[in-house]
């Protein structure tokens, strides 16, 4: 069986190392991007089964990348797991504000995990996303 590709977008080396190790040792094939721009490129190129996306990144932030993913016909169905130091409540509030402000209706991400992620939790959520 071919390993499922998971795109990991995070500007922090530690987080990338941790998640890629976790993914590799759990039967996935991680693909790495260090910012939103690169993330979008890799998403189009590698067609990952799911994306683990950091919210706070310099330049193209995770919030912007998420909206671009969800408004791209080709990419909008890839499940996205948001991973961030920002509290879940804050993130969803920011999404609502952006929806109203831009007149867009962007669906909620498949999952939202606050940093630091627990191994078990991340794997469980990932399984659910990729399985469906």
């Amino acid at each position: 069986m071919k390993k499922k590709r998971i795109l990991v977008v995070d500007d922090e080396l530690d987080m990338r190392t941790f998640i890629t190790t976790l993914l590799e040792t759990s039967g996935y094939k991680p693909v790495i991007a260090v910012n939103g721009e690169e993330g979008l490129l890799k998403a189009r190129e590698k067609k990952p089964a799911a994306i683990i996306l950091d919210v706070m990144m310099p330049r193209e932030g995770g919030i912007q990348m998420y909206r671009e993913l969800k408004t791209d016909e080709e990419l909008k169905d890839i499940p996205v797991i948001m991973l961030s130091a920002i509290a879940k409540k804050t993130f969803f509030h920011s999404q609502q504000v952006l929806n109203t402000y831009r007149g867009q209706k962007v669906p909620e991400p498949a999952a939202y995990i606050e940093k630091p992620p627990e191994t078990e939790e991340l794997l469980k959520i990932l399984e659910q996303c990729v399985g469906c």
Binding site: D14, M15, F18, T21, L22, T25, P116, T119
Partner: peptide, 26 residues
């Protein structure tokens, strides 16, 4: 501190995997 602890935990996880799988890179 929480973030740093997160990093440490992550590091320990990766080291453990290295031991488990005898993977020098990990």
């Amino acid at each position: 501190i929480k973030n740093i602890v997160g990093g440490l935990k992550g590091g320990m996880f990766v080291v453990n995997k290295g031991f488990e799988l005898s993977n020098q890179d990990y």
